[in-house]
C-alpha cells in the first residue's frame, strides 16, 4: 500500500514536470501553443458541464467522448467477431495459413487514413465508413494472436481430444477455446487500443460528432486550446480502456 502510494506520487511528479515543460514551451518558443492555464480557462465549460449539449459540435467533453466510445465499441465488436474465427481458421489449418498469411501481412500496416476514403465510396455514409475503417484496422492483432494461440496448443491436449474421441464441437469448446483464451484476450486488448487510435482519424475525416470530430472543428475555428483538451481526453480515455482490458485479462488468467 505504501509502495503504491509512492508510485502514485512519482507519477504525479512526472505529470507536473511535463506540464511545466508545456508551460515553458508555450511561453518561449511556441507562442501559438496555449499555456496550460489558458487551456483550462477556455475548456472549463466543457469539463465542468461534461454532459451539456449546446449544439451539434458544441457539447460537453464526456458527451463527445461517449459518442466516440460508442463508435469504437461497435467497430471493435465487428473486428473481434470477424477476427476471432478468422484467427482460429488460420491457426488450425496450415493450408489457410499459407494461403492468407502473406495477404494479411500486406493489409496490416495500411493506415486508417487510406481505408477511410474507400469506406466512404463503398457505403456513401460517414458512420458505416467509420465502422468499416475501425474494424479493418483494429482486427489484425486479434487475428494474429488467436492464430498463434491455436498453434501453441500443446500436443498433449490434442492427444487428449483424440483419445477421448471428442466431437468437433466439444473439441472447440472444451479444448481449443479455453487453451487459446489468454492469447485471444491479449489480441483484444491490442485491438481495442488500435480502434481508439483509428477513431480520431475517422471522425476527423468524416466530421462526425465525437472527440476527433470536435478536435478537427476547433482546429478549423482556430480555438487551439480545445485541441489540447481533445488530445488530453483521447489519452486519458485510451489509458482507461487499456487498464480495463488489463484487469479483464488478469482475471481471466487467474481463473
Amino acid at each position: 500500500m505504501k509502495k503504491r502510494l509512492g508510485n502514485f506520487a512519482l507519477a504525479l511528479v512526472g505529470v507536473a514536470l511535463v506540464g511545466a515543460l508545456w508551460a515553458i514551451t508555450s511561453a518561449t518558443i511556441a507562442p501559438d501553443l496555449p499555456s496550460p492555464l489558458k487551456t483550462w480557462e477556455e475548456s472549463k465549460i466543457y469539463v465542468m458541464q461534461p454532459w451539456e449539449k449546446r449544439g451539434e459540435m458544441d457539447q460537453g467533453i464526456l458527451r463527445m467522448a461517449s459518442y466516440s466510445l460508442w463508435r469504437v465499441a461497435k467497430g471493435f465488436l465487428l473486428a473481434i467477431l470477424i477476427g476471432t474465427p478468422l484467427g482460429f481458421i488460420l491457426g488450425a489449418s496450415n493450408l489457410f495459413y499459407k494461403m492468407f498469411d502473406p495477404t494479411i501481412q500486406v493489409l496490416r500496416p495500411i493506415s486508417p487514413l487510406a481505408w477511410l476514403p474507400l469506406g466512404l465510396i463503398l457505403f456513401r455514409q460517414s458512420e458505416p465508413a467509420a465502422l468499416f475503417t475501425i474494424a479493418l484496422c483494429s482486427m489484425w492483432p486479434t487475428v494474429i494472436n488467436t492464430m498463434q494461440g491455436v498453434r501453441a496448443i500443446p500436443q498433449d491436449y490434442h492427444n487428449v481430444a483424440k483419445v477421448l474421441r471428442l466431437s468437433p464441437w466439444r473439441r472447440l469448446t472444451k479444448i481449443w477455446i479455453p487453451a487459446t483464451l489468454p492469447f485471444m484476450f491479449s489480441g483484444y486488448r491490442l485491438s481495442l487500443g488500435l480502434a481508439w487510435l483509428v477513431i480520431v482519424a475517422a471522425e476527423m475525416l468524416t466530421g462526425t460528432p465525437g472527440v476527433g470530430g470536435f478536435l478537427w472543428q476547433e482546429y478549423n475555428s482556430l480555438i487551439y486550446s480545445h485541441i489540447l483538451l481533445c488530445i488530453l481526453t483521447i489519452g486519458i480515455v485510451g489509458f482507461a480502456l487499456d487498464r480495463l482490458m488489463g484487469v479483464a485479462e488478469a482475471r481471466l488468467r487467474a481463473a
Binding site: D156, Y157, N159, L164, R165, S167, K174, A179
Partner: peptide, 21 residues
C-alpha cells in the same frame, strides 16, 4: 505427464471422457 485439462476440475476431466464413452 497426466494430460489433464487445467481449466476443468477433476470431476469435469473424468466426465469429459465418460460423456464421450
Amino acid at each position: 505427464n497426466y494430460s489433464l485439462l487445467p481449466w476443468l476440475s477433476a470431476l469435469e476431466n473424468v466426465r469429459l471422457a465418460v460423456e464421450a464413452a
